[in-house]
Design a protein around this nucleic acid. Structure first.
Lengths: 122, 122
DNA sequence: CTAAACGCTCACATCGATGACAAGGGCAAG
DNA sequence: CTTGCCCTTGTCATCGATGTGAGCGTTTAG
């Protein structure tokens, strides 16, 4: 498939897909005329990249792990594992922060609910 | 206290504190010479703002809720509640995304661990 | 064959929170 | 009064992912 179809299937813009490739997150075969050619596997790959980007990973970090996403690579597996574990920790503590923020928000929501209820009573 | 001390106590840079004020996230009294004066309550307030910013809320969004953080305000309570609930949902789905990314990462980590173990066997 | 739709590269623009720096005023200790 | 440190406002720079548009080649349907 060409870039338009991959874009349609993944929801990533053509622009983003080219950017992913430029950053080494995605590899494409090229037609004789230079157009990018993808196969079905790339759909999942893009989904994974999107998931990681949405999680706040930088493309540099993802690029470090990507070589091991397709076929584990002995040379890079160790450093990739290090990066992955580091990111896993970062993710976990981010999740904790968000949960804390949500708790604080819940508190604010309750205070305001009660306030509105009191006003209604008067 | 003046801005330097608040900065030291909260970990937010002086620059950030001025920015928070400019965005309506923080209010300060001023000394006759124009210097910002804070009291202890502001430490908590800044912590809350930092927590929300770290959770990816825009300063505009936080500004919408802040008037109701100090003293509930009848005029704004309803719209603020709307914004708060909206943000709560956004937070929840962000947390879900991060959790999904972490699961995907765990999968990758396992694949690589096994690969390295197999290599070691040979 | 032609036109529409798609693809290519290159380069500049955008957003939001923050850093960095300039030019100047306020205040305490020597 | 001077020195040193803290404060003020204002402006320009930064980062990363993506939008946007120009200028030009390719593929496909009529």
């Amino acid at each position: 498939m060409r870039i338009g179809e991959l874009s349609a299937r993944t929801g990533a813009s053509r622009r983003s897909l080219r950017y992913y490739e430029q950053q080494g997150l995605l590899v494409s075969a090229r037609s004789p005329s230079g157009q990018r050619c993808y196969d079905d596997d790339h759909v999942q790959r893009v989904a994974l990249v999107q998931s990681f980007l949405a999680a706040g990973m930088s493309s540099r970090t993802i690029a470090q792990m990507v070589p091991c996403m397709t076929e584990p690579n002995m040379d890079r597996a160790r450093e990739a594992l290090t990066a992955m574990n580091q990111e896993r920790n970062r993710l976990s503590s981010t999740i904790d922060s968000l949960a804390a923020a949500r708790t604080a928000l819940d508190h604010l929501i309750n205070v305001n609910r009660k306030f509105l209820a009191n006003v209604a009573e008067d």
